[in-house]
Design a binder for these strands. Structure first.
Lengths: 294, 294
DNA sequence: ATCGAGCATCAGTTCAGCTTAACGGTTTCG
DNA sequence: CGAAACCGTTAAGCTGAACTGATGCTCGAT
């Protein structure tokens, strides 16, 4: 019988590309991963890995096996969820990943609701950029995560993960009040020469600002890199630049800031390992999140 | 993550009912099985087994988990089959279970065809009564098995196994020639007072004879217990009794025997572990069997 | 040409899981 | 009603699988 732990390593290799990365993700040494994958190949009787240069790549047989591994792991996840549902007391640790805005705007109310409905559950929050969510969910470092995607930065689908929608927001262009008034509403293009405030490079929000401007036909001149939208708005208010902010980040704008709704939207979803959608803790958290965003 | 080896033990327990039987089937000690199931329960966090008297029974949660175990094991079987199909050379041992008549009437030609088409494959035949096939397939002691079922002895469906039809035969009533002729054709009922020849008690064929007679309204007086149908017919020929024989067992009847076709049928099928239907060795054997029965 | 990154291999160690042995409870049979 | 057979559990000890750490090799980049 094929060893499921080894199949898990193979699946992780399919996502991460190198044995070293798999080892780091699952807190093993590369040596252990290499040995286990070699054992899997011996079991399989077919080459699963191809040594290309100093890396390894999956053979077609390896890719095919990964698909089976996904299915098996999904079903095991489902079984675990059902067992958890069968337990009368819902307790234990629930590791939640969330992007900063959600941590501030949604999670407090959601965790309060969760504590009321399921006092035995022990939520642990990690601030994680959506770009890093998928690997950490797969690796089991997180159980649930809040992620978002922008019109210009669609999330690629992940066979190992599943998600349900939570929130659908407008994006706003934040500009400082000008003394003489602007007459027309601000547009992306009208800000092409203004200094911009974006998030830290490498984050999804940073990519969103860059691509939105590029789609409007220009490359923004970014002066500040700031992740917290409240801070961003404060900077906009004092004329340090313009910025794109989502509805959640613009809930309580300071004076001196004009918010112009754009047609761009941001969709927030709750992601989890495929098969874990029936887990009572996941169900409970989703319910709490929904109640928190009304 | 739930341990699949332990899930396999749980599934086996669902079929066999006692830990001792599971241990024997998988060649462990009862102690090992007990320890592993205890570990599984600890992992699950829910009671899976109920101690009732000196036995154990599955709780509802245990039954539910077995369903997941079936699905996981099926998918693993499928993955193994696909890997085998990816191998250029089809080699290795193929363990075949067959009931005696099939061993004699079908397998020689089938194995010859198999050896021609796949010389690298190493078939090993075990004579196994259909009643014992299911556990041995599940336990992995057999890879493929020829089984049959009679109208009166339907095989109960097994979630862990799959099967494809191979052969559909008439059953014959074998009676000795009488000197004065019988006028009418013999019927089951006309033989109610004759001595009967049946198979060894405990086999499917034995059950078939008993139930067919009971359905006709009488209880047969069994004088001989003989499994080989050629021998049975020889005994019928010398007036030692009457018997029910399938078409395959009556291919070359000796003189002195009258064969009367009945409306009863016997269906022969090829069984294998669910998910292994795509295994190239299984596919090859089924093709060889089909060619052997024309 | 040299250095770093990445994978494979080997030896050593640790721990999960097996066996053996012994015990307690339950059913069955004389 | 007592004894024996059966079944499951627990404790103790041992074996082997799997992980770590060290070493070597190959490829690619500076």
């Amino acid at each position: 019988m094929l060893d499921v732990r080894r199949l898990r390593l193979l699946r992780e290799l399919a996502y991460r590309g190198t044995i070293a990365a798999v080892a780091e993700a699952l807190t093993f040494t590369p040596s252990a991963v290499s040995q286990q994958l070699a054992a899997l190949e011996r079991e399989a009787g077919v080459a699963l890995l191809e040594r290309t240069g100093r890396r390894v790549a999956l053979t077609p047989a390896g890719v095919a096996l990964v698909r089976h591994a996904e299915a098996v792991l999904e079903r095991l996840e489902q079984a675990a969820a059902e067992l958890a549902a069968a337990r009368s007391d819902l307790s234990g640790i629930l590791r939640i990943g969330a992007f900063p805005t959600a941590t501030r705007a949604i999670l407090p109310a959601a965790l309060a609701a969760l504590a009321r409905s399921h006092p035995g559950l022990d939520p642990m929050v990690d601030e994680v950029d959506p770009a890093e969510v998928a690997p950490r969910l797969r690796a089991g470092e997180l159980d649930v995560a809040l992620v978002h995607e922008y019109d210009f930065v669609p999330a690629e689908p992940d066979l190992a993960l599943d998600a349900v929608p939570l929130l659908d927001e407008f994006m706003y262009l934040a500009t400082p009040h000008t003394v003489d008034g602007e007459g027309d509403a601000a547009t992306l293009l009208s800000c092409r020469d203004a200094p911009w405030i974006a998030s830290t490079p490498g984050t999804l929000c940073h990519a969103m600002t860059m691509r939105a401007c590029q789609a409007a036909g220009f490359s923004p001149r970014v002066r500040h890199h700031i992740d917290d939208f409240a801070t961003v708005l404060a900077m906009v208010a004092v004329g340090q630049g313009v910025a794109l902010v989502p509805e959640l980040g613009a809930a309580d704008p300071p004076g001196g800031v004009t918010l112009t709704a754009l047609s761009m939207r941001r969709r927030t979803r709750v992601a989890f390992r495929r098969g874990a959608g029936g887990h009572p803790a996941v169900v409970a958290l989703i319910a709490a999140l929904r109640s928190a965003v009304r």
